[in-house]
Amino acid sequence: GVDAFKICSGDVTHLSLIRQVAGLGKTVMIDTGNSTLGEVERAADTVYSTGNNRLVIHHCPAGFPARLEEINLRVISTLKSMFDCPVAFSDHTPGWEMCIAAVALGADMVEKTVTLDRATRAPEHIVSLEPEEAKRMVKSIRDLEKALGSKRRVLTEEQLEERKKKMRSLFAKEDLLPGVKITEDNMNDCIEYRRPGDGIPACLDYLLLGRAPRCLVSKGRKLRWEDIGTLQ
């Protein structure tokens, strides 16, 4: 009645076992542990050879606790590029900081042991979380997932409104007379850059060069494109 089987790191090269387990059609989780990438690849190919595509690769640093310099979280990116399947992180460190970092680096799943009492005398208990800590870890990961957002840089409606207040537009620094051309020499005397940013953007000031106002633009007024004539 289980939904998945996990192959421990010591059995990654036990291909006949992996083939038999994969043949059951359930999800197969492969712990990488002390295995080489080549061994993990052969194990994955063995799962796929049975027609079972339900595979999860676990980046699983060895040790209780694992040494920080041997965790190599960036391997998560390597595994994701090598295998077309979810990649998990099995955490063997105290706390849950490494789980947060793993999710930020693209881990689809984290594995963390839970204990009722971390003082229990057994190797895994010292790197396990007690129930309330586990709840906080899950909340931290859910918050991170929201914060990660999208790879696309898209401004929200709130940001679009806020940028109008904070960006700068072009304003007349003095009365701008019709027919008097704006040049590089007089630009600083004619134009100033002020908020709000709902007029001609400050970054487009160069488009005024060689142009003259069509009509009088009073000092302090926000410039509009219809105020400006064509190049002269």
Rank of each mutant, 00 (worst) to 15 (best):
R142Y: 07
E124F: 08
H58V: 06
C99K: 01
H59G: 07
G106Q: 06
A147M: 14
E70G: 06
E174W: 00
E97A: 05
T78R: 01
K135D: 08
S49C: 06
G106D: 07
R74F: 13
K173Q: 15
E133L: 05
E69M: 08
A172W: 00
V180E: 05
W96T: 02
T183G: 15
P65G: 07
E184N: 10
T156D: 01
I182G: 06
T50I: 07
S150F: 02
D84K: 15
D143E: 15
L155K: 07
H59T: 06
R67M: 13
R168P: 04
R54S: 12
H125G: 05
K166P: 02
W96M: 04
T115I: 14
A134Q: 00
D117E: 08
E132I: 15
E132W: 14
T113P: 04
F89W: 05
T120G: 12
L155V: 08
G95N: 07
H125C: 08
T93M: 08
K135S: 13
S128K: 07
E133M: 09
G95C: 05
I71Q: 11
Q159S: 01
S128E: 03
V127S: 07
L129S: 06
K80C: 05
R163T: 04
P86T: 03
R163S: 06
H92E: 01
R152V: 11
E162G: 03
I141E: 03
L68E: 00
H92C: 04
K165Q: 04
T156S: 13
A134H: 01
E133D: 11
